[in-house]
Write a protein that binds this DNA or RNA. Structure first.
Lengths: 227, 227
DNA sequence: CGGCATCCTCTTTGATACTG
DNA sequence: CAGTATCAAAGAGGATGCCG
């Protein structure tokens, strides 16, 4: 990317990560940890393969991404974020929080991947009973399942399924998202078609609901997602 | 900008503000409040005038910018952020904080505007004596002066000068920035050429120095800049 | 002068095909 | 699997013209 040539930290940051796709590559690596080229390509539907390889190289030479030749049995290249790259998390958190307003409307042709729930889950859900038993929540949306693990105050999301989930939410991604963001109560989401199976009370532990009134503790360092 | 077509709030946010120059336009409007076209052009050195008019119109139709035909004596169009646009501040804060790492090195041909100190000032300075007397700090860097007003716990920055400043800092922008960010003590900055005139003790009130040890209160809602 | 619109060139992107 | 090669289309940058 052509530099803005401005001595301003925002412009400097955009010089490095302002290119198209760059921040989304960081998103995937933050959510999933080490990724193969193919994993990245799958997590970035629509990217052209030449652009992906260009961007990875740029992020690498900017010191945000590290390439690791994994030994057998993996025997492939894995891409990781460096520390500087991982420090972009607050940027993605802020962007993700701001962008939720554009997700109320149905997707209409948009691609979806279950792991993209990781950011909303970390942003909106909070384990209000850190001493309680660990929880597993399975999310089934658009053929791309994901699992939220709640344990000891942390909220982690990963792609995949869980046979022994305490709770399963199945339905359109926007219903799950609006539920997490507080725009819908569980009952309202169910009325709109969200299937809630299992122990629905675990939602009380996670959602910023009526008890523990809204706006009490804005945001500190909470549990984060990991691969 | 072409949509990413992903049902992810980060991608949706980038669909709206991911275009080149868009976030920097928001930066200028956040720092200075209502701006004329010419003000924006001056605050975005390097932008082509057709791009500026394109971007303003895009931001307008996205609902982030509002156009106001000011009556005489101004008799010109003023551009403002809408509420949705102003809510991008946490995004710019996070970006600005992350990008500071790229400002340690000298600018070398970069453009500079005094008002760009507004973000570092709000991010790094804190009025640790909200009951103390109001303060005026004049910054003189690269022919583009700015003033920081500290009063009752808020830290506001605007372009311009102050005849009766309590403190004047004159020197290279990176010296002032590193001083604010905690990378240099006042004495070290002075050794490197920063001219500190006036009551240097006001810095103790603002810098996160040795008393009130580092990392105690990370970041709550603090004073913000205004035009 | 403020607020654009036009024209032109150059760079970046996207789609697809191909390779070790 | 992890890319490179090719090429058409879109976008960015720069100069300049227009109109109140």
């Amino acid at each position: 990317m052509r530099s803005y040539g401005e001595y301003c930290s925002i412009a400097k940051a955009l010089d490095v990560i302002g290119d198209r796709w760059s921040l989304l590559i960081v998103r995937e690596l933050l959510i999933r940890g080490g990724c193969r080229y193919t994993d990245l390509k799958d997590g970035l539907p629509g990217i052209a393969t030449n652009l992906l390889s260009d961007r990875i190289r740029e992020l690498e030479s900017a010191g945000l991404v590290r390439r690791e030749d994994a030994p057998p049995p993996v025997a492939t290249t894995l891409f990781h974020l460096t520390e500087a790259g991982a420090e972009l998390r607050p940027v993605l958190d802020a962007l993700g929080r701001w962008g939720v307003r554009y997700m109320i409307e149905p997707a209409d042709g948009d691609q979806f991947r279950g792991q993209w729930f990781a950011f909303p889950a970390s942003l909106f859900l909070r384990d209000r009973d850190p001493g309680g038993p660990p929880l597993l929540i399975e999310l089934r949306a658009a053929d791309s399942p994901a699992v939220i693990e709640v344990s000891g105050g942390t909220v982690c999301t990963r792609p995949g399924t869980a046979a022994d989930a305490d709770l399963t939410l199945a339905g359109a991604p926007q219903l799950i998202l609006r539920l997490f963001a507080g725009g819908l109560s569980p009952a309202q989401a169910a009325d709109l078609g969200l299937q809630i199976r299992g122990d629905a009370r675990v939602l009380d532990r996670l959602l910023p609901g009526s008890p523990d009134a809204a706006g009490s503790t804005p945001a500190g360092a909470r549990g984060r997602t990991r691969a």
